[in-house]
């Protein structure tokens, strides 16, 4: 399939809020009640079509553990969209979203688009974060808010597609397509020189 655009998206949020489950539900249509915890990151891709544009989404699903946060910039660097996930039954996880937003605003691509997902909506009875509060916060930072359940599938396609739409919108407003995530060419030149140099000094044959 011919792809018009390729977007890098990152999922961020506290541990066990359902980042992997949301990504798996979206890309593979599966839900595993016993998902193993993520210690680094997973990488998933999905081709979608929005209006007349075919888009390949490269989804980086990161580990939520606070202490590995030092590794996170490797994943959100050059990302055009972020899905910030919290668990509606866990108040702390919502505040973690707020702190991620702060970090991304400082460190990530300045055009990055945010979508917030309040996950585990199948556990409505245990809700700790009022929906209105989350929506108000999303509005304040210019993000969209979705109520999701990786278990039932509710809101999952919508939240990922919203990110793609937001990125497309930003592209069309800025006039030129936002370049895809992997700036490789500059590195290649440098490395070819290095390889040649090593070969000459190594004298292995």
């Amino acid at each position: 399939m011919e792809v018009d655009r390729e977007f890098k998206i990152v999922t961020l949020g506290e541990g066990r809020v359902g980042k992997t489950s949301l990504a798996m539900r979206y890309v593979r249509g599966q839900f595993n009640e016993k998902e193993q915890s993520t210690t680094n990151a997973n990488f998933l891709e999905k081709n979608i079509r929005i209006n007349e544009t075919s888009i390949k989404l490269n989804i980086w699903d990161t580990a939520g553990q606070e202490r590995f946060r030092a590794l996170a910039p490797n994943y959100y660097r050059e990302a055009k969209g972020a899905l910030l996930v919290y668990d509606i039954t866990d108040k702390e996880s919502f505040w973690k979203v707020v702190s991620w937003v702060e970090e991304l605003k400082m460190q990530a691509d300045k055009d990055i688009s945010f979508v917030i997902a309040g996950n585990k909506c199948d556990l409505e009875l245990d809700r700790q974060i009022p929906k209105e509060q989350a929506i108000a916060y999303a509005k304040q930072i210019g993000a969209a808010h979705y109520s999701t359940s990786a278990k039932s599938g509710m809101g999952v396609n919508e939240c990922f597609e919203e990110i793609a739409k937001l990125i497309l919108d930003k592209e069309s407003r800025s006039g030129s397509p936002i370049r895809s995530s992997k700036a490789r060419s500059r590195v290649i030149v440098k490395n070819q020189e290095e390889v040649v140099k090593k070969k000459k000094s190594g004298g292995c044959c």
Binding site: T39, N40, A41, F68, L71, N74, K182, A183, R184, V187, I188, N191
Partner: peptide
């Protein structure tokens, strides 16, 4: 060249 960080081995 592929811009892959070794953190993927963490």
């Amino acid at each position: 060249t592929e811009n892959l960080e070794l953190t993927c081995f963490s």
